[in-house]
Amino acid sequence: MRPFALVAFASLLAALPACTGKSGTGKVKVAVVTNCTDPFWTICEAGAKQSAKDNDVELVFRQPAKLEVASQMEIVEALLKTGIKGLAISVINPKEQTPDLTRIASQVNLLTMDNDAEKSGRLCYIGIDNYEAGKEVGRMVKRALPEGGTVAIFIGETTSHNAHGRIAGVLDELEGKDNRADITAGKYREQYGKFKLHRKEPITDSTEPDKVLNNASDALEQLKNTPNVAMVGLYNSNPKGILESARSKSLVGKIKIVGFDENPVTLEGIDKGEIEGTVVQDPYNYGYESVKWLAHMAKGGDKKALPTKATQHRLVTKTGEKVAGVEVPIYKASEYAKKIRDSLEAGK
């Protein structure tokens, strides 16, 4: 049996190179590391790949299996040892990762995307301001329920910097405050201005698909006889979960749904008028821009050319028409969906 075992190993090892993306082109190698595995990052990868082609660099794109600093750093540490010339990373915990990132920034060109660590010495940040994006969501809720009402907030977790920003933005906007310094998670109240926060805290699902759906369904059951309800989904899968459970209970239209990110189901729901709208981040460009600027720096480009401001978030609605009080670009849902499909196609 020993020969059999060895043959099994040998064939496994022979099969391994077939799965590698190693091209051995001798081109400059840059890496993009996300915070977890998500459809959001699939769009980002398409942009990064296109950019690698356009800027003539070799790309390593890695998504950690878990949204956890330990798994992310295991990948980053290993990548650093493979001789990459630049790294773009979606930071999970800005404050605590800053020392590590500072050390990494001293070794390779480092830039942050999607989530920033300002003091890490990164070259630049590519991504939106989550607090501002949260306020945009809040404004949408206010437009949907001008008289106030009950708001249920769904999100994957409430511990990351991104999540803090979005939740604080929504709640501050509902209350009519603007206090960016007060992005403190963990302390929630029942009343925010004219709005009541359902369950007195955001409802989390650890991004597990069945829990996303169950949370939304349970809340719908509790709130189905309450007037003026808005359900806010702040992670990619949340608006989809809310919409699907509302459809299954025939409550579409009775409750207002406000979304975040560009899940295809979300965009379709907006197009049908089932969802009020969604705030989008443009992950395709996160990938494209990250690789572009990493290539720029690796080839000895000028630091001064790097972007200095946060990327602007955008709004997607059914019609795409101008809305009073909204300063960011507004897209029509059907057109935005097509744009994403096209870029994903091009990425293949």
């Binding site: 878990k66 949204l67 990351s160």
Partner: peptide, 15 residues
């Protein structure tokens, strides 16, 4: 874990 990665997230640390 905390000393090594510098940070722990209540929702998923050690998952």
């Amino acid at each position: 874990l905390l000393l090594n990665t510098g940070t722990a997230d209540p929702t998923n640390a050690g998952g």
